[in-house]
């Protein structure tokens, strides 16, 4: 009985919305009915296209995201550990963060062409700022008593970095990574919409230009599913990395 009620609260509204979609979509050219979209989804994406367009896009996203993480966390730790360096660079970094990342696409097209390096570079240059600034903030706010404890017990060098600095800053680092993920997805799509002959963003825009409306909607649906899946994966990772943080109640403080 309880399971049924949970199922209704969980699936009730989505089912209702799909029904409304169905009713509304009747005669509209721009909004094909759900069945058509699902069929288009199957035909379009569960095919060779998955390997030609979707996976390479995701691969570039992953590559850029990982590179931005290494760069952002690495530099962030350096900057965060030195008050002087932090005071010097903070305004510069704030400026770079304030630049809306998509405007870097035309610039990087000039510098790096329109192929994979440009697209990865775009993702890196957009994702790196939130990670960097959040890491700086996390490292700056490390607990002083813990820092003293490390000094007292001879915890230094790589061990201090691994066991104290990175762990202590991890709540903020994860917050930065979460922001960077949504920026990364946006940039993955935009870089392909611009000048490209393959990839998810390119394909969806192509459908739109050719008025393949159902296919276009299926692309939007796919992007939604990708966003959902990545945010789910991220949450799993976050739960794992920060279990101590949620457990200790520090998250609520």
């Amino acid at each position: 009985m309880r399971a049924l009620r949970r199922a209704v609260t969980w699936f009730g509204l989505p089912v209702l919305l799909v029904l409304v979609w169905w009713l509304v979509s009747g005669g509209s050219f721009y909004l094909p009915d759900p069945l058509k979209v699902v069929r288009a989804f199957w035909d379009t994406w569960v095919s060779a296209r998955a390997f030609e367009d979707v996976l390479p896009s995701l691969g570039r996203l992953l590559l850029g995201y990982v590179a931005a993480t290494l760069l952002g966390v690495g530099l962030g730790v350096l900057v965060g550990l030195s008050p002087r360096l932090r005071a010097t660079l903070e305004p510069v970094l704030e400026f770079f963060r304030a630049i809306p990342p998509p405007v870097l696409v035309p610039l990087l097209m000039l510098l790096a062409g329109i192929d994979t390096p440009m697209k990865v570079l775009v993702i890196v240059s957009g994702c790196v700022w939130p990670i960097l600034l959040n890491t700086v903030e996390g490292v700056r706010a490390l607990d002083e008593v813990l820092a003293d404890t490390c000094r007292m017990y001879g915890v230094r060098g790589g061990s201090r970095l691994r066991r104290f600095v990175l762990r202590g800053a991890s709540p903020q680092i994860m917050a930065g990574l979460r922001q960077a993920l949504s920026i990364g997805i946006i940039l993955m799509v935009i870089s392909e919409m611009f000048a490209s002959s393959s990839g998810l963003g390119f394909t969806i825009v192509l459908f739109q230009r050719q008025f393949q409306i159902a296919e276009m909607w299926s692309g939007i649906l796919l992007l939604g599913l990708i966003g959902l899946a990545l945010s789910f994966l991220f949450r799993l990772l976050e739960r794992r990395v920060l279990s101590w943080y949620y457990g200790s109640g520090a998250a609520r403080a």
Binding site: I185, M193, L228, L230, S231
Partner: peptide, 15 residues
């Protein structure tokens, strides 16, 4: 709906 990247709506907006 929340994680759907807003740029997914670009083609729709264009259309």
């Amino acid at each position: 709906l929340r994680p759907i990247p807003s740029v997914a709506l670009v083609p729709l907006a264009t259309l």
